[in-house]
Design a protein around this nucleic acid. Structure first.
Length: 829
RNA sequence: GCGAGGAUGGCGGAACUGGCAGACGCGCUAGACUUAGGAUCUAGUGCCCUUACGGUGUGCGGGUUCGACUCCCGCUCCUCGCACCA
């Protein structure tokens, strides 16, 4: 151990030793309690950024801490390696996507190692390697077998920039989640996963997720968008057709004065065929097609509509009502048609006023004189039923059920639940993804590739041209395949899977990364799953976290896992900013993990990123703050290095009663620090306060050395303090602690294999405590008293203080309050 | 509009169950050591009044309490998510 702290030297040294000893490996062991710590695996974009460094630092502290606590910890890492950037890079730099990706992975893995992250690299998974995507395909076939994967023609979101379709979740404000290009709808044949079949379970089981942030659960709940109501059939006048609508307000059915169809509704064309309104309606529909999704769905957009010339019949009262086509009705929700009740829905009200359609009041607030004529806005609250035949006089909320039952008896409609959630569109017209294992046969139709024929390999000798056409569509060799069923020549599906499919099950593969028989072994996932602590960015609140939950549930149904939810606890870590803005090259505020490691070492970087803010909050990067952490580590280094002589190996027995007052204080600080650090890490995830407590301990030890008489250092106490300091700092700054542990402490075994120290309640009671003495709630003095003083002793001690007495003079004490370990308050008058 | 979270020194943040507001760190000020200091150490650092004594202070206005950053009522502002969802 040299005199100066040299992070570069010791970090490289220990990283090598750790790798050789590989004690981060984990084996399933039913006799040990397991803990699965997982950080969201990265896309191998090329280099780690500060966001990565933050999430890995959080996970690594937890993993190291829990190992020392005696848990059997699984802490794996891998690569979400399929995706469009690899294709773009291939075109730009003339490198095959596989090569580009593998190079990036190699580089980023080196960076991760240089951060001192304690991953079990034996379990590394890479989603673009055949030994992984083979199992992604296997799971696709499983879902297909279960009827959860299907192909259909539908209006889908198309990103012209990425030249592929997108799932609904991947359209943010009408634009592509990746490149921001506005999406357009196209009518295409595509593969879907039936996530809607799990809508209720995805919603209900949110309640099981006590360890998830409330906001993430709410976001998922909103996204699923469950509404309960009724589906009602309205027969079209002079026609065999029936228009179905969905409503959450069957109690307003008698107030329907018109219907509105979405412009894309399949009946529109037929309803206007050959009539006067045909041209106007078709022009309107055409115009709506041209308006972008963003404009169409904005709440501010003016509500527009045209009359179709057709009428339908309200089944409840036989009234004829006009059918309109309107821009504010969406084909993607409910049935694409609505009943309009202007009296009780504000949108309908505005629309009715604009187009002079009738308003009919059917629910009245109790005791009011509201009428159809005098209302100035829709009345949306519950009330008393009017103008509703035999339901008149009833409570409107009761009528929701009553009228639904009536509809069911009469066969006019039924109770129904509608969701905002759509099925997950998983096919992509891209090359760099897992091929969908399907063959189309002229005779047999759509035929799944047999499990034993997997993987359907991506051809790697492809040329990516600027055309953006998937090379798979041009590859005769890839497409030509015998039909698995009849042997005739068929053609392979050329679409690949959404990369979110690959990331929907990777946490299961970590449990049995080398299985050649199954995607994962039941025995392994039974031991390791669920992930006890998942850590990642809030940007995945819906996308990845919803898909992974869906997969887990489907695989549960298939009997492949025994867990209903994949992630017990979720920590959504905040972003890393600098100077109030997101770090980026273009803004010139970029700080990279590499330069921090280069200038200060990984330990300093880890410490700062954990110290600067609690993990779930956004973090403002501050170069001077980094230097502060560097200074702290050097201060620890000097403390240990300069006082090696006082450190004696082996057990250090300490008898409290033999300690001096100064020693008792130090002993007390040591143990209250251990208590605080343990709780801050495990219970609160407040690494920032854990680190500050360790800093206080270091200050206290310096102060002890400063105060103690020359040559009178209590070696047992000091040794024990130094050892436990190194142990509790080790999860945060693993390299420097390992070096100090091996050199100053002289231990053979790694500091990371030590047991986490226990705090001793006896130590916490060793020293006197300082309490506050207040008069009328104002602090007038402080006093040191033994911990076990009772209330009377506290009060007596307080009243004896001269400063207190000066405030009591000439006054009567009317109340005395004594809170043990805290304060005394004397109320006087 | 709906929902969630937040507002504490010059800055990042702490105060966990109602009990010393500002721990810890950064920055700043003064001093020590030094050829030098951007190393290290010591002291100080919410605001106000000349020191002390004291007063005052956690977005704003009320309330409960011996005691409120913390609980209750009413506002303001900020961030995020959702938003024609029938």
């Amino acid at each position: 151990m040299s005199k100066d702290y040299n992070p570069k030297e010791i970090e490289a040294k220990w990283q090598k030793i750790w790798e050789d000893k590989s004690f981060n490996r984990s084996e399933a062991d039913p006799d040990k309690e397991k803990y699965y710590v997982l950080e969201m695996f990265p896309y191998p974009s090329g280099k780690l950024h500060m966001g990565h460094m933050r999430v890995y630092s959080i996970g690594d502290v937890l993993a190291r801490f829990l190992r020392m606590k005696g848990y059997n910890v699984l802490h794996p890492m891998g690569w979400d390696a399929f995706g469009l950037p690899a294709e773009n890079a291939a075109i730009q730099h003339q490198v095959p996507p596989a090569q580009w990706t593998d190079n990036n992975i190699a580089f980023m893995k080196k960076q991760q190692v240089s951060l001192g992250l304690s991953y079990d690299w034996e379990r590394e998974v890479t989603t673009c390697h055949p030994d992984y995507y083979r199992w992604t395909q296997w799971l696709f076939l499983k879902l297909y077998e279960m009827g959860l994967a299907y192909k259909k023609k539908a209006d889908v979101n198309w990103c012209s920039q990425c030249e592929t379709v997108l799932a609904n979740e991947q359209v943010i404000d009408g634009a592509c989640w990746r490149c921001g290009t506005g999406v357009v709808t196209q009518d295409l044949e595509q593969w879907f996963f039936k996530i809607t079949q799990y809508a209720d379970r995805l919603l209900e089981d949110l309640e099981l997720l006590e360890g998830w942030p409330e906001r993430v659960k709410i976001m998922q709940k909103n996204w699923i968008g469950r509404s309960e109501g009724a589906e009602v059939d309205f027969p079209v006048k002079d026609s065999e057709k029936v228009i179905s609508i969905f409503t959450t307000r069957p109690d307003t059915l008698y107030g329907v004065t018109y219907m509105v169809l979405a412009p894309e509704h399949p009946y529109v064309k037929e309803l206007v065929a050959g009539n006067q309104q045909e041209k106007e309606v078709l022009d309107f529909v055409e115009e709506m097609r041209r308006v972008s999704e963003i404009e169409r769905t904005s709440a501010e957009t003016e509500k527009l509509g045209v009359f179709t010339g057709a009428y339908c019949i309200n089944p409840l009262n036989g009234e004829e009502i006009p059918i309109m086509v309107g821009n504010y009705v969406l084909m993607g929700y409910g049935t694409g048609a609505i009943m309009a009740v202007p009296a009780h829905d504000q949108r309908d009200f505005l629309f009715a006023k604009k187009y002079n359609l009738p308003v009919k009041l059917v629910i009245k607030p109790e005791g009011s004189d509201l009428t159809s004529e005098n209302m100035t806005e829709a009345y949306e609250d519950p009330g008393i039923m009017v103008n509703s035949a035999h339901f008149d006089g009833m409570d409107s909320q009761e009528c929701i059920g009553e009228i639904t039952r009536y509809l069911e008896i009469k066969n006019w409609g039924k109770h129904d639940i509608s969701y905002r959630l759509r099925d997950w569109l998983v096919s992509r017209q891209r090359y760099w993804g897992a091929p969908i294992p399907i063959v189309y046969c002229g005779k047999c139709g759509t035929v799944p590739v047999p499990y034993e024929d997997l993987p359907v390999k991506l051809p790697e000798d492809v040329e990516l041209k600027d055309s953006r056409q998937s090379p798979l569509e041009e590859s005769e060799e890839f497409q030509k395949a015998p039909c698995p069923r009849c042997g005739q020549e068929g053609r392979r599906e050329t679409d690949t899977m959404d990369t979110f499919v690959c990331s929907s099950w990777y946490f299961l593969r970590y449990a049995s990364p080398h299985s050649e028989v199954f995607p994962f072994e039941r025995e392994d996932v039974d031991y390791w799953m669920p992930v006890d602590q998942y850590i990642g960015g809030i940007e995945h609140a819906i996308l990845h976290l919803m898909y992974a939950r869906f997969f887990t549930k489907a695989l549960y149904d298939a009997g492949l896992t025994g867990v209903k939810e994949p992630f017990s606890r979720l920590l959504a870590q905040g972003m890393v900013y600098k100077d109030g803005a997101k770090m980026s090259k273009s803004k010139g505020n970029l700080v990279t993990p590499d330069e921090i490691i280069e200038n200060f070492g990984a330990d300093t970087g880890r410490l700062f990123i954990l110290f600067a803010a609690p993990p779930e909050k956004d973090l403002d990067w501050n170069d001077q703050g980094v230097e502060g952490c560097y200074r702290f580590l050097r201060r620890v280094w000097r403390l240990v290095n300069d006082n090696k002589d006082h450190v004696i190996p082996g057990e250090n027995d300490i008898k409290v009663q033999d300690l001096s007052t100064l020693e008792k204080e130090t002993y007390h600080t040591l143990h209250s620090t251990i208590k605080k650090v343990s709780e801050d890490i495990q219970k609160r995830f407040n690494f920032n306060t854990a680190i500050s407590a360790i800093m206080e301990l270091v200050n206290a030890l310096y102060s002890y050395l400063d105060k103690v008489e020359e040559g009178k250092v209590n070696k047992a106490l000091f040794s024990r303090s130094i050892k436990e300091l190194i142990i509790i700092l080790a999860p945060f700054a693993p390299h420097i602690c390992e070096e100090m542990w091996s050199d100053a402490v002289g231990a053979e075994e790694s500091v990371h294999l030590q047991d986490w120290p226990h705090y001793e309640p006896e130590a916490l009671k060793a020293a006197d405590i300082e309490i506050v003495v207040q008069v009328n709630g104002k602090v007038r003095d402080k006093i040191k008293i033994p911990v076990d003083y009772n209330q009377e002793e506290m009060l007596n001690a307080a009243k004896d203080l001269p400063k207190v007495q000066s405030h009591l003079e000439g006054k009567n004490i009317i109340k005395e309050i004594a809170v043990p370990n805290k304060l005394v308050n004397l109320v006087v008058k």
